[in-house]
Each structure stands twice: as C-alpha cells, then as structure tokens.
C-alpha cells in the first residue's frame, strides 16, 4: 500500500533533480531544511527520527542532497522525508514536507479490533512492518 502523506505524495516519486529543485526553493525562502526517517509511517506518528540537526544557514541544495543520500544509504528500508521549517513570525511552522524514499515493498497497515465492554469495538491501525 503506497503511503500518501506530505506534499507530492500522489505524484510519482521525485527524481534527484526534482528533490534538489524543491530543496533549493526552500533554501531560497530561508526555510531550515531537515531530514527525518522512520520505519513506522503511521499518520499519527508525528515524530520521525531526526537525521542529524536541521541544516541551518545553507545556500545551496548540494549540502542537503549529500545528507539525504547519506540518510538513504544508512536506512535503505526506511521512509525518509524532507521538512522545511519557516521561522518567520506568524508562520513558525513546517511549510513543506515530502517523502524522498520509500522501502522497496510498502507493507501498509493492519486493522486491529479490540472488543471492550458492551460489545463495543475499538479500532487501531498498525503498520505491518512493526513488531507484530
């Protein structure tokens, strides 16, 4: 099951040149770009593992691309995403976030049902690549 979250996720995967162009767009606007990876892309999993500190004060996408490649090489089976944080007053939030790597086989989610009192059902989504 293809994970669709963040920008561009309904498009075919971006090529390296396209990722570099997007990153350059962010840098030109003064956003701090950061790289994160995870093995659990559950939509509620907001906090992915950070790949180093956010990359502040860069001028050119080449520096970010190097880090993206290093992160992909270190975690070939993880999801990797790029975030761009805008620190301008009034925004102070992530302005752009997109996935730059997916595992070769995306396992998707499993639906867990739990029966609680009065035959009520509780549902939970669990990523299949997880422990279970």
């Amino acid at each position: 099951m293809r994970i669709t979250q963040g920008t561009f996720s309904f498009l075919p995967d971006l090529t390296k040149a396209q990722v570099a162009a997007q990153v350059q767009y962010c840098l030109d606007r003064g956003w701090a770009v950061s790289i994160e990876h995870t093995d659990d892309p559950h939509p509620r999993n907001t906090y992915w593992e950070m790949w180093g500190a956010p990359l502040f004060d860069l001028a050119d996408a080449a520096g970010v691309m190097g880090e993206i490649e290093a992160c992909k090489a270190a975690h070939p089976a993880d999801y990797v995403r790029v975030n761009a944080f805008d620190s301008a007053r009034g925004w102070e939030t992530v302005r752009l976030s997109f996935i730059v790597q997916r595992p070769a086989e995306e396992k998707g989610f499993r639906l867990d049902r739990t029966e609680v009192e009065g035959r009520t059902q509780r549902y939970a989504l669990r990523h299949r690549a997880g422990a279970l």
């Binding site: 080449a62 520096g63 190097g66």
Partner: peptide
C-alpha cells in the same frame, strides 16, 4: 562548514 559553502 563545507555544506554551508556548497554552491559558493
């Protein structure tokens, strides 16, 4: 530092 200098 090298990352910051990229492109310049």
């Amino acid at each position: 530092i090298l990352k910051k200098a990229m492109g310049g």
